[in-house]
Nucleic acid binder design. Sequence first.
DNA 1: ATGCTAAGTTGTGCCGCAAAACATATTTAT
DNA 2: ATAAATATGTTTTGCGGCACAACTTAGCAT
Lengths: 418, 418
Amino acid sequence: MRLHRPHLSPAGIKQEELRRHNLSLLLRYVHLAGPTQRATLTARTGLNRSTIGALAADLANIAELVREEAPGVRSGAGRPSLVVVPETEHYQALAFDLGVDRIVGARVGLGGTMLSRKVVPLPPGDRNFESVVALTVTAARQLADEFGPRARCVGVGVAVPAVVRGTDGFVRFAPNLGWEQQPLGETLGAALVEALPGCSFDRAAVLVANDADLGALAEHTRGVARGHDDVVYLSGNVGVGAGVICGGRPLRGHGGYAGEAGHMIVNPAGQRCRCGARGCWETEVGIDAVLRAAGHEPGDGTTPRMVVADAQAGDQRARHALYEISRWLAVGVGNLVNLFNPELVIFGGELRELLEAVECDVVNMMGAGGLTMSREHVELVPSALGGDSPLFGAAELAFAPLLDDPLGVAATLPATGG
Amino acid sequence: MRLHRPHLSPAGIKQEELRRHNLSLLLRYVHLAGPTQRATLTARTGLNRSTIGALAADLANIAELVREEAPGVRSGAGRPSLVVVPETEHYQALAFDLGVDRIVGARVGLGGTMLSRKVVPLPPGDRNFESVVALTVTAARQLADEFGPRARCVGVGVAVPAVVRGTDGFVRFAPNLGWEQQPLGETLGAALVEALPGCSFDRAAVLVANDADLGALAEHTRGVARGHDDVVYLSGNVGVGAGVICGGRPLRGHGGYAGEAGHMIVNPAGQRCRCGARGCWETEVGIDAVLRAAGHEPGDGTTPRMVVADAQAGDQRARHALYEISRWLAVGVGNLVNLFNPELVIFGGELRELLEAVECDVVNMMGAGGLTMSREHVELVPSALGGDSPLFGAAELAFAPLLDDPLGVAATLPATGG
DNA sequence: ATGCTAAGTTGTGCCGCAAAACATATTTAT
DNA sequence: ATAAATATGTTTTGCGGCACAACTTAGCAT
């Protein structure tokens, strides 16, 4: 049981933090695993029965974060254990996934249940910053109207296909949205605090992050990567991004920009990328590359899924296109595997559909040359949460502060009264 | 002050672990920062004076890990603060760096002081596994003879230019040594326990790791990367390896194989690598590549340093060679920067000398194309510990268990009596 | 109905840290 | 030289958190 190792910065632990840690542990457990018997919690945490009882009582009575119920199904001898249930309705987060052609918003309860979901299509030409912010705020208002009377809004998480500064959600570069240097975190924060007066969170509770990073977070939390501590999530849309979990924690990097796998140079003899360099991975495996290889024009309405269907139907050109894509996928994924040595590489976004068609080829090509030790245990899998990975990740992002300090944060959140 | 966030595995903290954590914190502080006033410790940890006093007393009296001294130089008003000093002589580690042409061994005291150092050249033809193990054991015995009467040996750390399994130090692949599938951790562990009966550590205290990973650890601990939590260390010798620190912790990956940057494919049109793939980074920037580009034959005695000297002396061929190398360095380093977003990229091994000659070119080439946000704050620097980075890292590796649980581990280590 | 089992509940004790009061050592002011 | 100011070490006391043990409760099996 290792605690985080600090450098030379202060990190003395006091008893207060011990309590906070254990409360956090308990709440996070039921948030992740759902309703759980007290006996199970006792066994898993290693804490004493009486301690678990006291912690659960605090979470239930002081903040109504959980409730304790008699177990429904009886099993085995002995006194049945009370079940600790996360109060899904009491604590909710708003989550948004800002896509190239639509905004998806959701209301997610403690425990990770999606309570409602809303899709706002973006008019094709109109994805400028102000419009997207405005549409997001509108969607947020609609979602917030559905809060129950006892709901508290813990915050807002936003996934955006962009290079995002970790500290404040400033968007440095979002080629697919056509944005550069936009203060998304600050702007949305201010606008949402204004638009949702019933919610008592402050501007800092509006958290913006890269969509691939949040996809990774979601898959690690509730998707295929549960229990796996070293994972790479690939988000393939127009661009390609990676979210990385290493040692159980998201890889952020110094500025929060880590995981820009799409601009890893794999083919210096290749095409010029939007970023200015030549032979970036995403010019070889991005949607446009798939379509172009199959003889389509990007923007003509074709999707990678259709190319896959064509290939399965026997279309030689589509099959050859997929083979070419596989080669470059193998190179890039191989590089990522050599660098991160993950247990899983998760294919999210449009890459999900691609995977089933090309998995065999990619695996063979990766195995053919190069170091094999990292590759021998790695699995390529499609994302389990489908296209909603970043959305769920955004919700987790919003819940994170509450999970880190349950009673402390809960105390700052009076019921919305809505 | 965040503690490590566990997944669903047990991680309840009890008071005992609180104490352990704070003891660990204190010992690690003086190990890293050297002799430190109690007042400073109080301020940095945020703990109370009385608590620091008690912790320091435990470390001093129970295990003699530190001693408290009256301060030498007086400064400022008020009662002078006692200075907590790591007991360099009482706790020592053995560290080894197994190179291609020599073994370097050292005796390192708590606090990181190198107390003695020994170089054993390898006969050119003879670097087979058994010979290297035997020479290492011999060197260890010689170093152990110099332990003082009050010394306790905390363990042995070994750096090896190989892909090493994290759990047990099994060497999967060490092309430069000509090894494959060798149980280095197990073999050395058994041999050293046998050879050093005075030392009471067990086989598990012999820890083997990749040299680049240990270089990164050392530079992070005592080198240029002190205080920087996101760092890439490049170890350039015959092969190229990377050690990565992210979020202040070493990147290990699932099997411990992370950081194989040398086999990142950057030039699919390039030469075939020893690993079987084509266009690996190390075929473009490894020592052999440098020499070949400059018109030398690998193994003819030329070193990269000589090529640099030639270039500085005006040799056109050498200058052109360095320019070519710079291009590929820029591609690879750019990829690493995009993926890890480090604050620093440290050039270790032979790359150290290369850096000063090519830094300008590499920085310009990196800035020319590609995403710039990750690159705008990154610095390319030579390793501060020179060729001894992996050696110091090996010592840190050996000290780690003691630093994680000072009193617990110290209790298992009676004095060597030697 | 009785006993068994597994779990929750309650009370006690230990341990860790903070806070306050006291003691000590050094600098600065008178 | 003496006293005040300052900063720190030391001791004592108190509070809070968890473990442990004893007790109670709830279901199951015979």
